[in-house]
Amino acid sequence: MQIKTMAEYAANGETPEILFWVGCAGSFDQRAQKITKAFATILDKVGVRFAILGKEESCTGDPARRAGNEFIFQMMAQNNIAVLNGYEVKKIVTACPHCFNTLRNEYPELGGQYEVIHHTTYLQQLIDEGKVRMKEAGAFKGRKITYHDSCYLGRSNNIYEAPRKVLEALDAELVEMKRCRSNGLCCGAGGAQMFKEEEKGTTRINFERGKEAVETGAAVIASNCPFCMTMLTDGVKEQGKEDSVQVLDIAELIAQQIA
C-alpha cells in the first residue's frame, strides 16, 4: 500500500478524491492507530484516491476549546485552515467525531469551508454504491453487536442511522442499549475529560456505560470514536469481560469482513 500525503499529490500536480483527516488519537494512540489502519485498508481496497496531511496535520483544537482555552483553539484552527485552503481541499473524511464536529461546524466561520464526512457515513455510502461488499459467510453473522452512539456524532450532529446501516451489512443481530440514539449515555471522554482525572463521584462514567453495554449480552461493542474506544475498553475491563466482549470500531469490523 502506498499512502500519500497532500504534499506528494500536489508535487505531482494531482488532486485526491478525499483528504483522510486522521486526528491526534488516530495518529498517536496505539489502539486508535489500528482504526486508522483499518480505514486506510478499506479505502485502498476500494480504490479511493485519498491523501493524508501527514506531518502537516495538527490538533483541530477541540479539547482546548472545550476546556475553555479559546486561544489555543484559534491557533490550531487558523493554522489548519491555512494548510487546508493552501491545498484547496474540498472533501474531508475523518474517523474521529470530535475532529468531524470541529471541521464541519466550527471551521466555516473561521474561513474553512469543506464537505466534511464522518467515516461511518462514508462507509455507508461505499456500501450503498456497492463498492464495499462483505464476505459471504461473515464472522459476525447472527452474532449480537451493540452500538454506542458517540455524543459528537449523535446528539451534536444528529447522525444515528448511517453507523447502524453499516452494521446491518454484517448480518449481525443489532441489540440496542437502553440509552441509545439521542438518549445515548456519554462514554465520559468529551469536553476535554479525556485529558484529566474524573471529578469525584460514586462511579466513573465509562464504568456505567461499560456495564450497560455488557448487559446487552453482545459479543461486540461497536464504536465510532477513538475516545469512546478507550473509555469503553476500560469499562468492559471493569466488568471483567475483556475476554468475551470486544470493543471494535465500525471501520475495523468492516475491514475484517470486506470481500
Binding site: S27, K37, G54, K55, E57, S58, C59, G61, A64, F195
Partner: peptide
C-alpha cells in the same frame, strides 16, 4: 494538554514527526 497542543500540535506529549508513523 494545552502546552502539548501548542508545542506538539497534539494533546499528548508526542513528537509531531511521528504523526504519520502509522502510514
Amino acid at each position: 494538554m494545552f502546552s502539548n497542543i501548542e508545542n506538539n500540535m497534539a494533546p499528548w506529549k508526542m513528537s509531531p514527526d511521528d504523526r504519520d508513523k502509522w502510514a
